[in-house]
Simulated scan of single mutants.
Amino acid sequence: MTQPSIRLKRGEGRAFKAGGPWIYDNEIGEILGDPADGDVVAIQDYNGYPLGVGFLNRASTIAVRVLSRKADAVIDEAFLEARVRAAWQYRKDTVDTSSCRVIFGEADFLPGLVVDKFSDVLVVESLALGIDKLKSTILKLLVDVLAEDGISIRGIYERSDAKVRLKEGMERVKGFLSEPFDPVVEIVENGVRYQVDVAEGQKTGFFLDQKYNRLAIQPLAKGGRVLDCFTHTGAFALNAAKGGAREVLGVDASQLGVDQATRNAELNGMSDRVRFECHDVFELLPELEKKGEQFDLVILDPPAFTKSRASVKKAVTGYREINLRGLKLVKNGGYLATCSCSHFMTPELFTKTIGEAARDAHRRLRQVEYRTQSPDHPVLWGADQSLYLKFYIFQVVDDR
């Protein structure tokens, strides 16, 4: 029986042909056969030339998510096992795997699927209809592959509660995919202990993508006074204390986050040097400036100010404001660590925005380093959306 197919319009599919993982609905000329949404279809050029296979979903603007560029690829258990093994081997090669992102969607050629490992617990986020149908098979394979390295997974929790699922024609869901277990899991990262709530924490419970960026600020904090803005569960603040900071203030608009961060400080015996307070950062920074407060290190790790191209202009205003205010609080010779986790805030635009903030603040910057997300969140060239985290460390200098 002939496999159902989609055929591109003449001249369309340029991003896909350049390595992109998606084909949009307006690029498809016709659908051949009678595939159901979520089924695997062959991908053909306008003239019938085979280009690969992927998941179809007519309900989504992203009509096809590419699984393989091999026209004869068969998406069976052996195919999925090979993908899972490759993903795990890559993590073993590149990161501390005690807690890490094991599968990162399109960048691991399993589109729409995210799996994070927190110690002996897996948290899964499924964002595409096609991969959702294969989710249980992939998780079983992953548990088996981890067992080969002596890692016994005691539980799996699903956090497929992102709004983007609605765009795929799917309901938002969360809950246990294994026997129930205590969803508060203790992990250790960079020598710092955390309690991660995989059921109620943001996203999958903890932001693993900043692992090595947090480590990078440790030496800069030694002996200093540190301000950590948008602290969430206190990770940057606690890394600053680990690095030897004498005083750390972490602030967040969420009281739940502040409470978790406070518990994490207690867990690490750092409560004497680290305190957390609930504030709106945009309101707090000008107040600290008026008081004449100064810090040796200011950290800005805000949530994504934009999740679409339409709101980029407004986001630029927000990033410029917090960087301007943050820079004014850094002592001469001190350091600013600043980042954006929005894909739509491009590296070029983020860099330009920081430069404008520095000019407005009358501060001069010396770049220490530029970083992106941790290697367990790999950036796949050709798949622009896989690069989202931009992280700068600057020294604030006065050459007068």
Results as ranks from 00 to 15, higher is better:
278 C>R: 15
170 M>G: 08
229 C>Y: 07
385 Q>E: 15
203 K>A: 07
249 L>C: 11
315 A>F: 11
359 R>S: 11
234 G>E: 03
130 G>Y: 04
73 A>M: 08
46 Y>T: 00
201 G>S: 07
306 T>L: 12
230 F>E: 01
375 P>T: 00
1 M>I: 05
31 I>N: 03
306 T>F: 10
149 D>R: 09
172 R>V: 06
387 L>D: 02
288 L>A: 02
44 Q>N: 11
12 E>F: 06
84 V>W: 04
397 V>C: 05
128 A>K: 02
323 N>F: 11
212 Y>S: 13
37 D>W: 05
263 R>A: 06
47 N>T: 07
297 L>Q: 00
168 E>T: 02
295 F>W: 02
396 V>L: 04
43 I>Y: 06
226 V>P: 06
148 E>V: 08
391 F>C: 09
302 P>N: 09
26 N>G: 01
9 K>R: 15
72 D>R: 09
121 V>R: 15
8 L>G: 02
368 V>F: 05
142 L>W: 08
164 V>H: 01
36 A>R: 13
61 T>P: 02
177 L>F: 01
303 P>K: 14
247 E>M: 12
99 S>D: 02
132 D>N: 12
317 T>R: 15
144 D>I: 06
161 D>R: 13
210 Q>K: 09
198 V>T: 06
111 P>V: 08
237 A>W: 06
122 L>F: 05
129 L>C: 07
388 Y>C: 04
102 V>Y: 02
76 D>T: 06
101 R>A: 03
193 R>A: 15
98 S>I: 09
218 Q>S: 07
353 T>G: 01
177 L>W: 10
235 A>V: 15
160 S>I: 10
59 A>S: 15
26 N>F: 07
